[in-house]
């Protein structure tokens, strides 16, 4: 492995970017492909599968054996709203192996007492989110259904190409949300990425059950669809 490839792998991880190092096992030749460039590659299908699984793998192509060293950022969940559902979801997300952060400017809600063992930021989403740099390996769930708290975060989530965006609220609440987002400059295609009503339809009633349905929906979005450009993500209707 050339030192420059090793540096690029390490740099990509630090910057939360996906890259794959392709090694021809027979002759040792190597090349590095960035996550956003896999579509044009001869091994695009295999690269896509490996990136989606987030796992290194040996693949065969035209009689040759290649090893794919896959570097994907750890998946994060950012939740807006330090509410009852978030309290239930925090330990579940941890068990499932996700790094979770909760943001809520309402200090009465965002207290360490209510949220032990999870990252909690008592700030407005437009202040708290930029330093976290949401990206396509980030899921964002909006639980406040208060436009002045949810909307600034939602705008950032849409721009950041988050692989999952879900927002709590009835169909009526969501219709109003869509109107506001259109006024903010987003089109139907972009807005179809917001999953609302949030969560898989498993008939959840309690906050804990809703947390299960949201976590399930996040895992579905992560594992069953390519973590690619936003346009590649189909409308939420398929999942629900």
């Amino acid at each position: 492995m050339r030192l420059e490839h090793l540096q690029e792998l390490n740099k990509a991880r630090a910057e939360r970017r996906a890259v794959v190092l392709i090694t021809d096992v027979a002759d040792g030749s190597q090349r590095l492909v960035r996550g956003e460039n896999i579509a044009g590659d001869a091994l695009s299908e295999q690269l896509d599968a490996a990136l989606r699984a987030g796992k290194s793998a040996t693949v065969e192509h035209e009689g040759k054996s290649y090893f794919l060293t896959v570097q994907v950022p750890p998946v994060r969940i950012i939740v807006i709203g330090a509410v009852h559902i978030s309290q239930a979801m925090a330990p579940m997300a941890k068990l499932a192996g996700f790094d979770m952060t909760i943001i809520d400017p309402r200090t009465a809600f965002a207290t360490p007492d209510r949220f032990p063992d999870v990252k909690l930021l008592a700030e407005w989403p437009d202040v708290a989110l930029p330093p976290l740099k949401p990206d396509r390996y980030t899921a964002m769930a909006f639980f406040t259904h208060d436009p002045k708290i949810d909307d600034p975060g939602l705008i950032q989530a849409l721009h950041a190409e988050c692989f999952y965006i879900g927002a709590l609220g009835s169909r009526k609440t969501h219709a109003k949300r869509v109107e506001r987002m259109k006024a903010a400059g987003f089109n139907d295609e972009q807005l179809s990425r917001i999953r609302a009503p949030i969560g898989l339809d498993i008939g959840s009633v309690t906050p804990s059950e809703i947390a299960v349905s949201v976590l399930g929906e996040i895992i579905l979005a992560l594992r069953k669809k390519p973590l690619r450009a936003p346009n590649a993500a189909p409308a939420g209707s398929k999942a629900a």
């Binding site: 492995m1 030192l3 090793l6 540096q7 792998l9 390490n10 991880r13 096992v25 290194s56 040996t58 090893f67 060293t69």
Partner: peptide, 23 residues
């Protein structure tokens, strides 16, 4: 991940370095 970061450090410090990977 730490291991690859360490490989880079070692190499930059002038040491001969090899990486073994389960393929």
């Amino acid at each position: 991940d730490d291991i690859l970061a360490r490989a880079e450090e070692w190499r930059k410090a002038g040491r001969g370095v090899a990486i073994a990977t389960v393929i």
